[in-house]
Each structure stands twice: as structure tokens, then as C-alpha cells.
């Protein structure tokens, strides 16, 4: 039972990571290789406040989100005018530097010794003691995050993000400040990564620079690619599927335990390559936000009735709608 709850907790954290990166990468088209790093910033911020200032992890989570958002904001400000490819390189550099900073800033992070004894959150004045309580807490936090992010994705805000991905000049000509949009989405994605980092830190109680390396960043990208870039359900599905892989190979007993980590990552690599090769749109492809045909049928909107203009629209499943 507790094994299952542990899994649910890790799935939840993965879902937050995948969905938040999806806003940035799937929707806005900004491929970031620093998402694991932002998670690390969140984990360390929350852990530091909880350990040194005895801040309740619930509030520390907000501080973590703020810290990650701040770094995200600074980075976005600096990179907003460079091209897409250069943004990827710069975010890779950021990822490497975040880990470098965490490893070197030993006064605060204890470097490669890691921070241990990260507490669980307290609710109603009581610290959480059981995995059941913590799993429920994590799931609730994840649901809130997911609802917020899906609301963003499924609204005109999400459309604006996709518009920026498709054509910056066009969005500018339509009156959108694309620079502001790019900065905003980076800040949002970073903040959610910070929340995921906090949940992780409380869960495992011990955090180490190695937990947030470029490998993690790439694996989060793989969640999206497997599930479906630009689709929030896809992101969640991808996270759950890929997070199940280590559990499956751990139960198989074939691989010696010291090689479990590398083997697991080799499989991630193979899955990633296979999806790029055979199914680049992921399991659930991107879908339109707006379904006019359906809205017309349901009467949410009405077609103007003029002589000679047929009021019917094509079905939402017209060819190409899920191209």
C-alpha cells in the first residue's frame, strides 16, 4: 500500500513538471533544458527555509515557487531577444550553472553532501507523519496546479501562447506584446517547477545536486514528447508512463542494482528516440482549443442566418483537425 502511495506521489510530481514545461515548450515553443534545474532551485529554497528557519513546508513551497520564478524571470529577461536555437543553448548553460551553483555554494546547500532531514508539511498545526497523509497532500496540490494550468492551456491565454509559437510578427501585429508573453510563461513554468521541487524534497527528505541534473531536464522533455507536446493530458500521461519504467525494471531482478540507474536512463533514451522516429506527435496529439462546430451544435454560439449562407459548420473531426 505504501509502495503504491509513494508511486502516486512521484507520479503527481512528474505531472506538475510535465504540464508546466508543456506551457513553455509545447505551447509557446520555447524549448527549455533547465526545467530540472528550476525544480532544484525550488527544492533547495524550500528545504533551506524549512531546516534553518523552521518555516512550514506549505509556506516554504510558496517561497520556493517565488525563488524559481525569480530566476526564471531574470533568465527570460536576458534571453528574450535571442533566437529559438540560441535559447535552447542558453537554457542548457543555465541548467549546468544551477547545478554548479548548488554544488559550490556549500554554506547554504552543503554542496555534494546534500541537505538531509527535510521535513514534511504541517497542516492545522500538526506535522504529517504517514505516507498516506503526505500522498493526499501531494495529490491535492497537484490537482490544484493541474486545474490552474489546464485552465490556462484551454483558454484564449493558451491560444495566445500557441500564436506566439506559430508566428511572432503576426501576434505583434494583432496587438500582443510577445516579449511580455514569453517572459510571463517562463515565470509561470519556473514557479510550478519550484512547487514540484518542494514536493519532492519533502517526499524524499534528502536532496542532492545530482537529483536535478541535465538528465532530469531531458527526461522531463521526454515526458512531453512521449505523451504529446502541446496537450496537457498527454503531458500527464507521458510523465506517468515514463515514471513507471524504473518500477518495471526494478521488479525484474535481471539487472544488478548498481547498474539500475544507468540502465533506466538508457531505456529513457531508447524510448525518446523511438518516439521521435516513429511517433513525433506523442501518444495524444495537440488538439484545437476552440471547437466552433461543437459550439454551434450545442447552441453556445449561433450561426448568422442569411439567405444563401448555410448555417452548418463542418464537424470538429474534419480531416486534418488532429494532424
Amino acid at each position: 500500500m505504501s509502495y503504491l502511495l509513494t508511486l502516486v506521489t512521484f507520479f503527481s510530481i512528474g505531472i506538475i513538471l510535465a504540464m508546466s514545461l508543456n506551457l513553455l515548450m509545447g505551447f509557446t515553443g520555447q524549448v527549455s533544458m533547465a526545467h530540472g534545474g528550476f525544480m532544484g532551485i525550488g527544492a533547495y529554497t524550500a528545504a533551506w527555509f524549512a531546516i534553518n528557519a523552521e518555516v512550514n513546508m506549505v509556506w516554504a513551497m510558496l517561497l520556493a515557487a517565488a525563488a524559481a520564478a525569480l530566476i526564471g524571470w531574470l533568465f527570460a529577461l536576458a534571453t528574450v531577444r535571442i533566437s529559438g536555437d540560441e535559447f535552447i543553448l542558453a537554457s542548457f548553460a543555465l541548467q549546468m550553472v544551477i547545478i554548479e551553483a548548488i554544488s559550490r555554494w556549500t554554506d547554504v546547500t552543503r554542496g555534494t553532501y546534500g541537505l538531509s532531514g527535510v521535513p514534511k508539511p504541517e497542516l492545522f498545526g500538526e506535522p504529517m507523519r504517514t505516507i498516506e497523509q503526505y500522498a493526499v497532500f501531494t495529490v491535492v496540490v497537484t490537482l490544484i496546479c493541474a486545474v490552474v494550468m489546464m485552465r490556462m492551456a484551454g483558454s484564449t491565454f493558451g491560444l495566445v501562447l500557441r500564436g506566439v509559437r506559430e508566428s511572432v510578427p503576426s501576434m505583434q501585429a494583432l496587438g500582443r506584446n510577445t516579449v511580455r508573453v514569453k517572459i510571463l510563461v517562463m515565470v509561470i513554468a519556473s514557479a510550478f517547477a519550484g512547487i514540484a521541487g518542494t514536493l519532492q524534497a519533502s517526499m524524499v527528505t534528502f536532496i542532492h545536486p545530482d537529483s536535478f541534473t541535465i538528465m532530469l531536464s531531458i527526461i522531463i522533455v521526454a515526458y512531453l514528447l512521449v505523451g504529446g507536446l502541446g496537450n496537457m493530458w498527454g503531458a500527464a500521461l507521458g510523465a506517468v508512463l515514463l515514471l513507471s519504467i524504473p518500477e518495471l525494471i526494478a521488479t525484474s531482478d535481471v539487472i544488478p542494482s548498481n547498474l539500475l540507474g544507468p540502465m533506466e536512463r538508457v531505456i529513457y533514451g531508447v524510448v525518446l528516440m523511438a518516439f521521435v522516429w516513429f511517433r513525433p506527435k506523442g501518444i495524444i496529439a495537440e488538439r484545437p482549443v476552440l471547437r466552433v462546430g461543437r459550439m454551434l451544435r450545442r447552441g453556445t454560439v449561433t450561426a448568422p442566418t442569411r439567405p444563401g449562407s448555410p448555417a452548418s459548420a463542418t464537424t470538429p473531426d474534419a480531416p486534418g483537425a488532429t494532424r
Partner: peptide
């Protein structure tokens, strides 16, 4: 500069 991977209605809505 049509937003290729958006639907026709979505393109206009963004206007």
C-alpha cells in the same frame, strides 16, 4: 504569417 497549426476560428479569435 498565418498561424498554421491553429484552426481558422482560432486564428480569427486571436484577432
Amino acid at each position: 504569417e498565418v498561424m498554421q497549426r491553429l484552426t481558422v476560428a482560432e486564428n480569427v479569435l486571436l484577432g
